[in-house]
């Protein structure tokens, strides 16, 4: 009986991925927004960005360096990162671009043309 409960619990653990919420910053410029998300240990291959129902999801899977030896002081967390943002309707979802540099994901979210301030010259 005991054995069975333990097995079930382990199965649950493998099914649900554990994620932590990475710190992020949103900066608004005149042309759009810049979104910065901290994902140390994540490189280009581990990054997964998707947009569904106007919701932007960023998942970062870490590829941490293997280090020989015993861990004698531990502060970092091993879990992968996941964060979602609701997109403002003014953002042109098809024009979003992303890059990752030293574990920092930078997304550029340009405002759609029709919401940019426009000057109309009187002819």
């Amino acid at each position: 009986m005991n054995m069975l409960t333990r097995e079930n619990r382990d199965a649950d653990r493998t099914q649900t991925d554990q994620f932590i919420v990475p710190p992020s910053s949103v900066i608004e410029g005149s042309d759009g927004y810049t979104l910065e998300v901290e994902m140390p240990g994540v490189n280009k291959d581990g990054l997964d960005i998707s947009i569904e129902n106007n919701e932007l999801t960023i998942i970062g899977r870490r590829s941490l360096p293997k280090i020989e030896g015993t861990l004698i002081h531990h502060e970092s967390r091993q879990e992968n990162f996941r964060r979602t943002f609701e997109l403002d309707p003014s953002i042109g979802a098809d024009k979003i671009s992303a890059r990752i540099e030293q574990g920092l994901v930078t997304l550029t979210l340009p405002k759609a043309e029709h919401v940019k301030p426009r000057k109309i010259t009187v002819s």
């Binding site: 140390p40 030896g69 861990l71 004698i72 002081h73 531990h74 502060e75 970092s76 574990g103």
Partner: peptide, 21 residues
């Protein structure tokens, strides 16, 4: 930033999370 310390026979290794520096 988060810091980890490892010890092996030959080395001490410190890892620090410093994203975007």
């Amino acid at each position: 930033p988060a810091l980890d310390l490892y010890q092996s026979t030959d080395n001490i290794v410190a890892t620090v999370e410093l994203p975007g520096m």
